[in-house]
Simulated assay, not measured.
Amino acid sequence: MSDGFTLTRIEGVTARLVPFAWEWARDNAALISENWRRRCAARSGLFDGRVLLARSCRLEGAFCSVELFETSYASFITHKDLGSPDPTVLNAFAAIAPHGSDGAVLLGVMGAHTANAGQAYFPCGTPDLDDVRDGDTVDLAGSAEREFVEETGMALPADAQNQWLLLCGKSQAAFLRPVTFPNQANALRQDMERHRLTEIEPELAGFVTVASSDEIDLQSMPDFVQAYLRYAFPSSSASASSNG
């Protein structure tokens, strides 16, 4: 696949929490502290909680296994801001990719008070300690559904597909579960917006629909979202070329 990502269809993902001393974070403690100070000065309300990053991601047949370790959000965001200089560490996360019955995809736009203000991507979050079950099992699939329900107010359809796509590249491992809803995308967006307006401090500023790869916004949509949208909506010119 293009865009610097590989795309693999998988049936599921298993993840576990492992002890790991992240040397890059230790060696760059002063840089992390200064970057966090700068970010907090730009946007008040940021919280340096504990998050989970991946030290390995392995395909095993139709499934993928991930080993995650605990670190500070400040370390994670600094590593991301610097272009992920430690190639041994991945930002691994899971998300529901919602489609309307008309095929269009819905994205949430991050609010101005968040670390990723203005970016448009699937409702999701970086895994954290709330996703750990039974000691060391990390429920990535459950995290994806929980984040989706919290941010959109919508439950998944009873017959929702449970197939996954792994988009891997640019120091990311995005586990995406495409789910098609019975209503068209614009109706879904209106329902999601009504839920957002009931929240006291909504994380999202709104929602957008995308029905074509021509609607990709290079400025607001992260690389993994652009890669998924090009997969979901092959351009007519590319289709014509491939058909000769």
Rank of each mutant, 00 (worst) to 15 (best):
G4R: 01
I32M: 11
A97N: 11
I32A: 10
T14S: 10
R146E: 09
L31P: 02
R37H: 12
L197P: 00
L166W: 12
L59V: 14
K80L: 13
F69Q: 11
Q163H: 07
L197I: 00
F63Q: 10
P87V: 08
F122L: 11
L59R: 15
S213M: 04
Y121G: 11
T126K: 08
F47M: 03
G61E: 08
V179Y: 11
S65M: 02
G125Y: 05
R133F: 15
L129V: 14
F63M: 12
A155I: 01
S213F: 01
A54I: 09
R55M: 10
A232L: 10
L52H: 06
V138G: 05
D191E: 14
E70R: 12
F224I: 03
P234Y: 06
V179P: 12
G118S: 14
L176Q: 06
G153H: 04
F5C: 01
F76H: 10
A117N: 07
Q119R: 15
Q172A: 02
F233K: 02
V18K: 04
E193K: 01
F47H: 07
A104M: 04
L82P: 03
N243S: 10
S213G: 09
F63R: 15
Q161P: 00
Q190F: 02
G49I: 09
L166H: 05
A97E: 06
A41Q: 13
G244V: 05
V225E: 00
I32P: 03
S220D: 00
R196F: 03
F175L: 15
R230K: 14
A155W: 09
R133T: 04
E201S: 11
V149F: 09
N35A: 09
R55C: 12
A95T: 07
A41W: 10
S101H: 12
T114W: 06
C40P: 00
R58C: 00
C64K: 01
R196N: 01
L197D: 02
E203Y: 07
R133L: 15
E67G: 10
R38L: 15
F47E: 14
G118D: 07
S75D: 08
F148P: 03
P19A: 15
L46M: 07
R58H: 05
R16G: 05
Y121T: 12
S33Y: 03
E151F: 06
S237K: 05
G169T: 01
A104P: 07
L204V: 04
S44G: 14
W36E: 02
L167V: 02
V225K: 04
A117P: 14
R230G: 03
T71V: 06
S75E: 12
R194I: 06
L31I: 07
Q163S: 15
W22K: 07
C124W: 02
S56W: 07
A94D: 01
